[in-house]
């Protein structure tokens, strides 16, 4: 696949999405879409580590919350510019990722043990944030309303949609670039078989540390966006299990270990969540029921997610006569 062919779908999807605020005027819809983009970014972060690296985290809230709190608190407490604090939030989230990664991968934690330890870290952060004075405790942090672009606050929700879309685009490009790199090959090798990877000269600890650092940084960016959009945080939002769940369910529904999986999954999840919210009335927790049901369906019938299923249906539709799907493209550059 040439470089252009590799990035063209990303450009197309982003360009198409960028038109949405121009045609959709409903604030409710834009609001919904912005939230979906924020979830998509967190999910993209999770997908780097979980989808490509096979390390299933249950505690990406630790990174989301760190990004959100650093973004918010450096503004409210130190008076720094939010564009700068979002960047610092990303760095802080990445650093938390590196530390958690070092502690757990160094001790050889894998599978459900890794999932549990990340969950535990996120819960500890939530409890600490709820108790600490600097985070505003249970009352939370309120970012002062001051609508100016240089203040990362926008008069129109459409503008925020574009900002969120830009971050999603960065996530898509980053994921594709990793897919096409040596690091990406090593990451996938570690996911598939760690011993075999070691025999081929791959240092699994190094690979997993880099993956969790990037993954955490991206999810922290999602937290920063959240803080700037809603201008309010408390421990339950920032470090709550809800975001850990969304970040991992979206890629699984959309297509784990694929570039577009997290975005597609986030759209499907949020869309269906809203729809059932409308149909079933405001039954508390109904969206979680939908998530659970979708997760079961995905695991049972489409382990490669919505994007994988769409691909299979597309191939079947294209060539209904030939049951054997022989790969037509060789997939490799000419040597």
């Amino acid at each position: 696949m040439s470089r252009v062919a590799a990035y063209l779908p990303i450009a197309a999807v982003v360009a198409l999405a960028a038109v949405v605020p121009l045609v959709v005027t409903s604030n409710t819809v834009i609001n919904f879409l912005v939230f979906t983009l924020i979830v998509a970014v967190a999910a993209q972060g999770w997908n780097l580590l979980g989808g490509y690296g096979g390390q299933y985290s249950f505690g990406h809230a630790a990174f989301f919350g760190t990004g959100a709190y650093v973004t918010a608190l450096l503004q409210t407490q130190a008076g720094w510019n939010p564009w700068a604090t979002v960047l610092l939030g990303i760095l802080a989230g990445a650093a938390v990722g590196a530390v958690i990664g070092f502690l757990s991968f160094r001790s050889g934690l894998r599978g459900s043990y890794f999932a549990l330890i990340t969950l535990a870290f996120a819960e500890v952060f939530r409890i600490l944030a709820n108790a600490a004075g600097i985070t505003g405790g249970a009352a939370g942090v309120l970012i002062r309303l001051d609508v100016r672009p240089e203040n990362f606050q926008f008069a129109s929700r459409g503008t925020f949609f574009w900002v969120g879309l830009a971050v999603v685009a960065i996530g898509l490009v980053l994921t594709r670039a990793i897919e096409r790199s040596r690091f990406g090959a090593h990451l996938v090798a570690v996911r598939e078989n760690e011993d075999a990877a070691r025999a081929l000269g791959v240092d699994p600890l190094r690979v997993k540390l880099l993956a969790i650092t990037l993954s955490a940084g991206l999810t922290a960016a999602s937290g920063g966006l959240y803080a700037q959009y809603f201008l309010f945080l408390d421990a339950g939002i920032a470090y709550g299990a809800w975001i850990s769940v969304e970040a991992l369910v979206a890629p699984i529904i959309g297509g784990i270990g694929t570039v577009f999986g997290p975005l597609v999954g986030a759209v499907v999840l949020q869309g269906l969540g809203h729809l059932t919210g409308h149909l079933a009335g405001e039954i508390p927790g109904i969206s979680l029921v939908v998530f659970g049901a979708l997760l079961i369906l995905a695991v049972a019938f489409a382990p490669d997610g919505a994007t994988g299923m769409a691909g299979r249906l597309w191939r079947r539709w294209r060539r209904p006569a030939t049951p054997t799907t022989t790969p037509t493209a060789t997939g490799g550059e000419r040597c």
């Binding site: 096409r180 790199s181 040596r182 990406g184 090959a185 090593h186 996938v188 090798a189 996911r191 598939e192 078989n193 011993d195 075999a196 990877a197 025999a199 081929l200 000269g201 791959v202 997939g331 490799g332 550059e333």
Partner: peptide, 24 residues
């Protein structure tokens, strides 16, 4: 110990990456 989820080409490429950084 194959990387079961990868193609044969991708499997071998993981080894080749030891001496060659570029994916292509």
């Amino acid at each position: 110990q194959p990387f079961a989820g990868l193609t044969v080409r991708e499997n071998i490429a993981v080894g080749a990456h030891l001496r060659h950084r570029a994916r292509a």
